[in-house]
Structure formats: structure tokens, C-alpha cells
Simulated assay, not measured.
Amino acid sequence: MSQAMDEVLAELAVLEDPKVREANAKRGDDHGVNLSRLRAVAKRLKTQHSLALELWATGDTAAMLLAILICRPKDFGRDELDTMLRQSRAPKVHDWLVSYVVKKSAHAEDLRRAWMLDPDAVVASAGWALTTERVAKKPEGLDLSGLLGTIEAEMKGAPDRLQWAMNHTLAQIGIEHPVHRSRAISIGERLQVLKDYPTPPNCTSPYAPAWINEIVRRRLGSQDAVPPDGVERLP
């Protein structure tokens, strides 16, 4: 273990806050470091890929999150990323790895296709997260109708994290692609997934029909506007 590694781990230990750990535990994350403070550490360290590899290898959630922030995403091979994802069982590590590392990799599309078919629901959820990204930014070549069919058939009974990721894809298709909007809303209304999810005031519900209609309304700039495909919003 390098001296730099020792110093960083000692700093993370000082930043450990029992109240933060307790709050994170409710979301399935096992670390007690405030993320703003963690980002401040990463900003000071800047990119240090070798140190990132050492931090990742500890298996400690806070250290793995810091590793994601200071690594060099393009330096990871396809198999390395696959292994890292399977090691990412804490939700925040999983989400950050996909968002901050895999999405920047040349292997993202290959991994997206493979992960979507993986029998491990957590791994599959990463494939759906990458699919959501493509739906929004690079939909060319995607079978959007086929994706809606899969969502309609499988989302209701999917494990929580996979269900959440599929629901995000459903909402994104409805938001970004007017030709599929009414079908996306209809699927959401029929499946009722996340309809009763507790949503704070002034936040958008993750229930796909409400989510789709709210974002479309904002983009149109009028509460009275009708989406381009003629589908009325939910009240």
C-alpha cells in the first residue's frame, strides 16, 4: 500500500459521520462520508489512475466512490469494467460507475448489449441505464418499439433496481419520442409501477405517465399546452 493510499484512507476515516452512515443505510449504501466532502477530496487529488485502482481494490464504499472520481475512464478495458460493475453492489457505487466511467468508455455500447441480457438483475439494470442514455442522446439504431414491448412484459415483476432502470427508459422514450409517447403513457398507466412512490413537494414523480407529462409540459412552456402527439396530460 502506497503512502498516498494510507493518507487518503486516513482522511476518509476522519470524514466518517455516523449520521451520514445512518441516512445512507436507508438507501442501501454502507458509507458515512458526505458526498460534497468526498468530491472536495477528489478535486484536490485530481486524476490519479493508479491511486484510483488502489482505492477500488479496498472494497470500501467511500474509497470506491473516490476512485471513480479520480480515475481515468478511458484507461479501463472492457473486461475490467465488467468486473468492476459486478463488484459494485452498493447503489451509489453502481450508479456512479455507470454514469461517470462506463458512459465515457469506448466499450459502453458493447457492455450495454451484454448487460441487458445478464441474469443478474443489478447488472441488467446497468444495461438499462445505458439504454436510457442512448434513448435520449443517440437513439439511432435502437428498436424503441421493441424496448417498450420488453418493458410492458417484464417491468412489473422485475426486482426493484432493475424495475427502476426500466421505468426510467420507459419515461425517457415517452419524453424524447412523441411518436411513442401515447404507448409509453399507456404502458405506465396499465402497470402502475411507482404510482404511489413518495415524492417531495416540487419534485417530479417517478411514475412514468406523470413524469412524461410534466417534462413535456415544461419543455412546451405552458401548463395548458397539449403534447405534440395530442395526448392530454394527467391532471
Rank of each mutant, 00 (worst) to 15 (best):
K156R: 14
G221Q: 11
W56F: 03
G146M: 07
L65G: 03
R27Q: 14
P227W: 03
Q163M: 08
D17W: 01
A90Y: 04
H177D: 10
P228S: 03
R78Q: 15
I151C: 07
D229Y: 04
L148V: 05
C203Q: 15
E189G: 01
N34H: 14
L53C: 04
P200I: 12
S88G: 04
S105A: 08
L51N: 08
A52D: 07
L81A: 06
G230T: 07
H31F: 11
M5E: 15
H107A: 13
K137Q: 11
D120C: 01
A210S: 13
R161C: 02
R181L: 05
A40Y: 05
C203V: 09
G141K: 09
R217L: 11
S222P: 01
L65F: 05
V102A: 07
R78L: 12
R86E: 12
N213K: 00
L220K: 03
N202W: 10
D6M: 00
N24R: 14
E16V: 00
M1P: 11
A136S: 12
A57D: 15
A63R: 04
E22R: 12
T132N: 13
A25Q: 13
T150H: 09
A129C: 06
D224H: 06
G32C: 00
L15C: 01
T83R: 09
L142G: 05
V135T: 05
I185V: 14
E140R: 11
G59V: 03
A4V: 01
A129Q: 13
A4D: 15
G157P: 02
Q223Y: 08
V98D: 14
R190G: 09
E232K: 13
E154A: 05
Q87I: 00
L144F: 04
L81F: 08
R190E: 15
I185C: 07
H168N: 15
K26F: 11
L130C: 06
G221Y: 12
S105W: 12
C71V: 01
P227K: 03
I173G: 06
L144P: 07
I175W: 10
Q192G: 07
S99E: 15
F76W: 14
P119Q: 11
L130Q: 09
S145W: 05
H49S: 08
V8F: 01
A158Q: 07
E176S: 09
A114E: 15
T132W: 11
E54F: 00
T47Y: 04
G28P: 05
A23D: 14
L220P: 02
R161H: 03
W96G: 02
